[in-house]
Design a protein around this nucleic acid. Structure first.
Length: 967
RNA sequence: GCCGGUGUGGCGAAAUGGCAGACGCACAGGACUUAAAAUCCUGGGACCGUAAAAAGUCGUGUGGGUUCGAGUCCCGCCACCGGCACCA
């Protein structure tokens, strides 16, 4: 990178205004009931005095960034992309008169700090604090208009106290299917058999008291089967390397998402959150929010809803049964399957159970036992990756048993195969090889019959392996016939018949599993749970009282995971064992916990009494307060936008954070703690920034761009501007340092538009002489130096071409073209073209001999969201020309576009012949069709193409174009 | 395999169905300068022409279609990126 001449003294300007904003608390947002200081620019703009009520405050606009995990590597260039976009909009919305909430914080629990602790023994708190300091310095140096008074840190006990509090709400709630929402467990009614017996009158009645005890234990289990946070012993993903279990969502291709370590299935006692209870709501409410289709689709896929039917097949042919039909009085095993295609029931020529299915051992015939046992043990040894590997050959073993197809009484063989998953549906399928790809492959390999039952509408299509809808064929049985029916009708008819016969019922299945919520780690929120023993020595869990929060993690010297899977917290014996003999829960919560609700804490970050105050929550989440006409909101509703107005972040959180946060929010909504059903109304994903070589940035490629280097050479404004100028926000795009230089040059042109060159030369000489060029890296400077820098900057005079004169119509046209374009583009988040429009404005303005101050003043308001430091500096200088009590630039009203200035007297109209451009004519703007047509026909350059031909048709698009159609 | 997205100069990219390539980078030429940097001005899709022009032809991944007119709309295909993936 060649060090070229500095375009303008950003190294003095940027720290100056960052300090100014800090000191003035320019970007502080105020909660209802708070008194806005009289001299605060927000109070002046909106004429506020005294405590501001919800109705006095302007309409809210909540612009949220996905808060970063403060890693040791510091900020990368991807972070400021989203942050700049949101900051530009925050500043734009402030100018438009909104009350903008724009906060920042730290998602600071997580593995890296703990891994570092394991290696070095340094407490994760220390690492985390150092990383936060670095991130904060870097973010602040970019001049974002965050309200730092609302900063949150998920590892702060004052914060995670409320994370634990929300856990208690989950623990103490259940999902009531009748009211279709979460309710406190106190509303839960026990089934009849768990009704408490009247206490035995004779306390020596051991039989009765034992019975009562058993009921209590069952009640406890029943509660656990309903709680939204519950403990279960289930096969979970265990990662040896990380020494912890992981959620489904954290396992990618059979490896841990963090670090790519192998994971294995292992039964362990874990905390789970019953997110499956919300599957239907999480899916349905996607229709109420403004997210990209691709993102919604990812969530839909993850939730994985499928409608179908459960069907029972009776087992025959086991050693206990007659091999033809089940007989009266003989106990009959039933295999329940789930299918989305009940219409293909007649084509079910065999069945498959997952190898782990409970019935496998019971139905396997003696001659098949060895083979089955062998297959099961092979499958058990396979990792999940091996089981799901692409293009893998189908495997399986016949159990020796048969089942009866309920629609036609056919005897069909029962197999086991690992292509059937124990964890989905019922863990068993009816195989319809003719119309299911997997069944088709399996049947082909093992020579099982393939029977057509669906006819494709196109007779040329092969029915073998045809999986789409068609018409049922060969589907007539003794009691039910669907032959000739289209798929949808066939499904309905056969499902109704199954239900009537008690053989099955319509069902909905989800791919979504409950959320595995415990980790065997140190650096996370401890659970507010203790374990106790009952009189028989059985362990049971009990929630702590809210007054016991926060539960702080103990101090440790060794953070290593234990080989047994016992969490590191177990080492802190004094912490674990409580005086009353109970023991603390040893697991911690996953990193996702803190990020599930941080956007709510911002609303009332310092509240010591609640996770968020009601009034603040209602105002900022938009269920009370004034509406703004231009704010986004769901179609057909009035009032402010419900939820966060705009949430910007990367796609990596498409299914994890965004699903979990929606889930928690919905629970809090059901319990009455928040007032909107969805947290994030509009969500935009920023695209990845690739390296200069078009590859993803990585240390190993050596193409990583460090924001600090860019700031040092070009300044924050150029960095911000470049990140927005690269292309559309959502797109993937490669970095180009030369591109930064390009927008930097533009800012230099803006600077020279405003300042007198001679005085700037003097400034530069003075600066060089004084040898006090301050490196941006060392922006923490003393008061004396700061004063001196101010004096240096004062040497720079305003450009003498700027005068307080009335602008010409042409100048106003240039200005209003820019106002229109920038305003429209900001509304559509098209930052790149907004910047182009400003470049066009400046290119034009440079040629003006006299530059009217009023025009430049308006331009600075347009520029301010993008390059706030430079805009503030020039704004301050411009106000010296026309000293008046001017508002702070950050709250200056956004310029109003006036279409009158864009009206033209004469228009240039392209003339086409047969759709090809041949000439351009000038016509008066108010010319009628006939006039334009005559002028077009006379267009000189069009003549050669008209000669000797008849004009068959003339298309006149008013003010746009003329097309002459000739034959 | 399924779902979503994207294909436009040397590069990043613009274009409510109406002058394709705005704006910027890189490049080339000029001015200023002892010189360089910086700055300012000019040029630029390809082809064919020409001393230089002009005119002309072609041109938005690809093949069709709709239309007076298509980068934009419709149908088929190809490539790349992202997500999901034996979910019955």
């Amino acid at each position: 990178m060649s060090s070229s001449r500095r375009q303008y003294p950003f190294h003095l300007i940027e720290p100056k205004w960052q300090e100014f904003w800090d000191k003035q608390q320019t970007f502080r947002a105020f909660n209802p009931g708070e008194t806005v200081p009289e001299n605060h620019p927000f109070a002046r703009r909106h004429q506020l005095s005294g405590p501001a009520s919800v109705t006095q405050l302007p309409p809210k606009f909540y612009i949220l960034d996905m808060f970063p995990y403060p890693s040791g590597a510091g900020l990368h260039v991807g972070h400021p992309e989203g942050y700049t976009a949101t900051d530009i909009l925050a500043r734009y919305k402030r100018a438009q008169g909104f009350h903008v909430l724009h906060p920042m914080g730290w998602d600071a629990f997580g593995l890296p700090a703990e891994q570092y602790a394991i290696k070095t023994g340094q407490h994760p708190r220390q690492t985390t604090e150092a990383n936060i300091a670095t991130f904060k310095r870097q973010i602040k140096s970019l001049g974002f208009s965050y309200d730092w008074s609302r900063e949150v840190d998920t590892t702060d006990p004052e914060y995670f106290k409320w994370t634990q509090w929300i856990f208690l709400k989950l623990y103490n709630s259940w999902f009531n299917p009748e009211t279709n929402k979460a309710e406190p467990v106190s509303t839960l009614e026990y089934p009849k058999e768990l009704e408490l017996l009247t206490p035995p009158s004779d306390s020596n009645d051991r039989e009765a008291s034992e019975k009562a005890k058993q009921i209590l234990i069952k009640r406890f289990a029943y509660l656990d089967s309903k709680r939204l946070a519950y403990v279960t012993e289930a096969p979970v993903w265990w990662c040896e390397e990380l020494g912890t279990v992981l959620a489904n969502e954290e396992v990618v291709d059979g490896k841990s998402e963090v670090g790519g370590h192998p994971v294995v299935r292992k039964p362990m006692r874990q905390w789970m959150l019953r997110i499956t209870a919300y599957a239907e709501k999480l899916l349905a409410d996607l229709d109420t929010i403004d997210w990209s289709d691709s993102l919604k689709e990812m969530q839909r896929n993850w939730i994985g809803r499928s409608e179908g039917a459960e069907v029972d097949f009776a087992v025959v042919g086991s050693s206990r049964c007659d091999d033809r039909t089940p007989q009266r009085g003989v106990p009959t095993e039933k295999i329940r399957v789930f299918t989305t295609r009940p219409d293909t029931l007649f084509g079910a020529t065999y069945m498959v159970l997952s190898p782990e299915h409970k019935l496998v051992d019971r139905i396997t015939t003696s001659d098949q036992q060895t083979a089955i046992a062998k297959y099961k043990s092979e499958v058990a040894k396979k990792s999940d990756l091996e089981r799901t590997e692409l293009a893998k050959e189908k495997t399986g073993v016949f159990t020796g048993a048969f089942a009866i197809n309920p629609v036609n009484g056919e005897k069909i063989p029962i197999w086991i195969a690992d292509y059937v998953l124990a964890s989905y549906g019922t863990g068993a399928i009816m195989a319809v090889p003719a119309h299911d790809t997997r069944d088709f492959e399996f049947a082909t390999k093992f020579n099982l019959p393939i029977l057509q039952v669906v006819q494709p509408s196109d007779p040329k299509t092969d029915w073998r392996g045809f999986v789409d809808d068609g018409t049922s064929v060969n589907s007539t049985g003794p009691e039910i016939a669907i032959t000739g029916l289209p798929t949808a009708e066939a499904k309905k008819k056969i499902t109704a018949w199954l239900e009537a016969k008690g053989l099955g019922k319509q069902t909905i299945n989800f791919k979504l599993r409950d959320w595995l919520f415990s980790r065997q780690r140190y650096w996370g929120e401890p659970f507010p749970i203790v374990w106790k023993k009952d009189t028989s020595g059985n362990l049971y869990h009990e929630a702590l009282l809210e007054s016991a929060l926060p539960v702080l993690p103990p101090s440790l010297t060794d953070y290593k995971p234990t080989a047994t899977g016992e969490p590191p917290l177990a080492r802190a014996k004094d912490w674990v064992n409580l005086p009353d003999g109970s023991q603390r829960e040893l697991n911690t919560m996953p990193q996702w916990a803190g990020s599930c609700w941080y956007y709510l804490r911002y609303l009332d970050a310092k509240n010591p009494n609640a996770f968020v105050g009601k009034e603040a929550e209602q105002y900022w989440m938009g269920t009370v307060g004034r509406a703004a006409p231009s704010a986004p909101r769901p179609a057909g509703t009035a009032g402010p936008t419900p939820g966060v107005d705009l949430y910007v972040g990367g796609t990596e959180h498409a299914v994890l954070h965004l699903l979990y946060a929606r889930f928690w929010h919905k629970v809090l909504f059901d319990l009455g703690y928040v007032s909107t059903p969805e947290p994030f109304f509009k969500l935009v994903n920023q695209g990845l920034i690739l390296g200069e070589d078009g590859q993803k940035m990585s240390k190993s490629r050596g193409n990583v761009v460090n924001p600090d280097d860019i700031l040092k050479e070009f300044g924050a404004d150029a960095f911000r501007l470049y990140e927005m100028f690269m292309g559309p926000l959502e797109m993937v795009k490669p970095w180009s340092t030369q591109g930064v230089a390009g927008v930097y040059k533009f800012l230099g042109r803006v600077w020279r538009l405003f300042v007198d060159e001679k005085s700037e030369t003097e400034f530069e000489q003075a600066e060089t002489t004084a040898g006090c060029s301050v490196e941006p890296a060392a922006r923490q400077i003393g008061a004396q130096r700061r004063r001196y820098n101010e004096e240096l900057l004062d040497l720079i005079q305003l450009n003498s071409a700027i005068k307080a004169v009335a602008p010409t119509p042409a100048q106003l046209k240039t200005l209003h073209t820019c106002i229109k374009k920038v305003t429209e583009d900001l509304d559509g988040m098209r930052f790149n073209t907004a910047i182009s429009a400003m470049m066009v404005f400046v290119n034009d303005t440079m040629t003006w001999e006299t530059k009217p101050a009023a025009v430049l003043r308006e331009f600075l308001i347009l520029l301010a969201p993008f390059a706030p430091h430079l805009a503030e500096e020039l704004w301050a200088r411009l106000s010296t020309l026309n000293p008046q009590p001017s508002t702070s630039l950050s709250y200056a009203p956004w310029p109003k576009f006036d279409p009158a200035w864009l009206v033209e007297d004469t228009l240039e109209i392209p003339v086409q012949v047969n759709g090809k451009l041949r000439d351009v004519i000038k016509v008066p703007a108010n010319a009628d069709h006939a006039t334009v047509e005559i002028a077009a026909k006379a267009a000189e350059k069009a003549q050669p193409f008209l000669a000797g031909k008849t004009i068959k048709k003339v298309i006149v698009v008013p003010k746009k174009l003329v097309n002459l159609v000739v034959g």
